[in-house]
Design a protein around this nucleic acid. Sequence first.
RNA 1: GUCAGAGUAGCUCAGCUGGUUAGAGCAUCGGAUUCAUAAACCGAAGGUCGGGAGUUCAAGUCUCCCCUCUGACACCA
Length: 515
Amino acid sequence: MLTNHLFTITTPLYYVNDRPHLGSCYTTIACDAISRFKRLEGKEVIFITGVDEHGQKIQRTAESNSISAEEHCNNISSKYSELWNTLNITYDRFVRTTDANHQNVVNQFFNNVKKSGDIYMGNQKGWYCVGCEEFKDISENTERPQCDIHKKDLEWRNEENLFFRLSKYQTKIEQLVTSNDFIHPISRRNEIIKFVSKGLKDFSISRVNVTWGLPVPGYDGHTFYVWFDALLGYLTATLNNGGEYKLEQLERSGWPADLHVIGKDILRFHAIYWPAMCMSAGIDIPTRIYGHGFLTREGNKMGKSLGNVLNPLTLYELVGIDPIRWYLLRDINFGFDGDFQNKRFIDLINNDLANTIGNLLNRTITMSRKWFNNKVPIVTVNGNELIKSKSVHTINIVRKELDRYNFLKASEGIIELAKQSNIYLNDNAPWVAIKNDENYDEVSACIYDVLESTRIIGILLQPLLPNLSSIMLKQLSYSPEKVWANDLVWGKLEQDIELPTPKPIINRLDTNIEI
RNA sequence: GUCAGAGUAGCUCAGCUGGUUAGAGCAUCGGAUUCAUAAACCGAAGGUCGGGAGUUCAAGUCUCCCCUCUGACACCA
């Protein structure tokens, strides 16, 4: 397999403690946009997503709902896959850490790491919060410490755990994280560099009191802790291509991942633990880690306690997929935090999609049909070069920015072309010119130019708004190819072909709706 | 607490190595138009650039102090 034609991208494996929220949607939609872009650029993409299903927290949630952990995981996992299907996410693999094959991969990986001499038995002791399920960094001499979050007394625990020798990889990890392209965005890279420079400590990879997890081979009572379970899901998913689940098969299956897209909260584990683990297991390390920001709502954190969590499914049923994607991709600077604002959401959709782009398509097709026998005009004179050169310019910008995962800049470029096209129409006023027969050829050229720039807008929107894009192109009687290089050429719209009656490509949102 | 980043029009942000009247989009108001989803187009208003001091012929842009916010500071799925 020609690996340079492959592009492997992953979302995090979402923890199935609760149903999916807008944050996981954001990550997944970003990955979807990247995947679609890469495919359009001619790559063969392996788009991996999935769920992380083990751990005490899940066990406990299941218990509180009086169902088995398996049942709980099945419920929530299907909520995820169903949501991705509803949102038309083009994922190729959906991995569950409860898959039998996953255990197989985990065992192989663990054995490799063990052979490298990087596993040892140690003691994990400290103040432990049952609610948080973690050890707190509080001095041993503290009397009756409490958990800040749960306001409960902490328990002193001294637990036998297996450890991974992360400290051994200090130098290699330092080199890795300081290299230019490994961690994005740069602000986060600096945090990681600083963290690593303070010295890496070994970390525990097993738990003794958690039954809902994968057993560690050779160590009775131990189950793998999250990082030696969940992260390996990427490998399991990569190997899920009809072949054998052998680590030796990874390289010809699309590993290493070209891009792990994750939330900033788990950056350290992906940028430090994970590559060190891969080095130890003798497999290639991923090429790039991209930590994106979090979403707030009207300036506040989204959370159950505030009762302001935005349910993606509700939002979808209210406005459809295009507004959601447009808002997340065009308004949030990928890599930074974003704020979801009701008013801004509505303004953005109505302005960009309905008014600027939608109306451009509508008015241009209407004119073309009205004056050219329901068809695309036949051009006999050269049009103004302005819109053509503007289009070519926009194509370059959008491709360049998408290649950097800068959806915001790419979107702005597209909007700019739509604005220029609207201005071009207003400046040339073909509806005035057409009243004089002498201008017929000139008007043909003008309308064709704008139909063409609108087609290019439709093509460029494919990775960002696949649904809206396809509606636009259908109205322009244009069928795009799988790879967009040939579509992104001026003059591809056939002349003298029928144009159907245009319909609004998206309805304006009522400015009074509450999301 | 320590370190890092940020505080510029109502909102979201641009403003590279200091240099003429501080920019954009959205929101607001006005004009004009009708091909179009009362859309597009043109224009106006709107900022003592967090506060204070300093360097300089000149500071949003450099230095110092203060205030506010965000993030990191190891086991947070």
